[in-house]
Amino acid sequence: MTTEEIQAAVARFPDATPVLSTADKVAMDESIAALHKAGKPAIEGLIAMFVDRNPEVDCKARHALHALVHHVWTIKDDAGRALLAATMAGALGGEKPKEIQAFLLAQIQLCGSKEVVAALGKVLLDPELCDPACAALMAIRDGAAAPLRDALPKANGRVKLAIIQALGALKDAAAAPALRAIVKDEDRDTRIAACWALASIGDATAIDLLTAATASEGWEQIKSVKNCLVLAENLAAAGKKSEAAKIYRHLHASRSGAKDAYIRDAAMRGLSAINMKLKETVS
């Protein structure tokens, strides 16, 4: 497919005048089919049409690439999906403007799989790309935790925060030791994220760390209590009832003020759900 043919296919996407009210589905579908049939040169050709923050120039090309993402899923073309994702991933980390790379990451979030995980790992430490890269890895799931674990020791600030959160979302048990080491980070949001990630993972060895975190104040305390409840629920769901009960009992005893009645009630409901009592029975 020549550059002119790609441009002709893209031209059949609707003009935005000012909205996309004149969309011709038949013409668009024909264009998508032609672009799909052309394979990698068409994908690269579309990406080459992108410009930084100037939708008047590249609106149709971005629309076409996005439509192609849906198309490979619709026709169940897994090889085509992998080619599309890999071709987009090949444009990451280079000289292209970060806004364009972020757009490509958003498309990879929809169609990427294990084949692009390594390429995503290469942009994780870029402050402008970390968020969309993490979002893509969270969507991909399969094999996605490894590059996040590798990047965590080298990360700082918002990048570190995003990586911690992604590891929690992926429930990556292998990351638990590294996460436990940062629950006392100097940054509040990092502490909260690390505790949440450990709760999400269901890390029984983090019980004392998470219950200790509830001694904080304000927003951090609100989130710390939530993290304890989530950890208890995940432990209970994993059959670790005595560990879950330990958390519930701690919350019930430590949240003793009038304003914390709802926390004590939540702890009681948690205990009841696992058939445990507030007082530990000593046999």
């Binding site: 629920e233 009038a258 939540a266």
Partner: peptide
């Protein structure tokens, strides 16, 4: 390993008692 309740089922079960604590909440 014992087959345990899923997290969603756990939350549903614990929610069954959610109306009970009203008496503790009244200021």
């Amino acid at each position: 390993p014992k087959k345990n309740v899923t997290r969603r089922r756990f939350l549903k079960t614990s929610a069954a008692a959610a109306t009970v604590p009203a008496m503790f909440h009244i200021v």
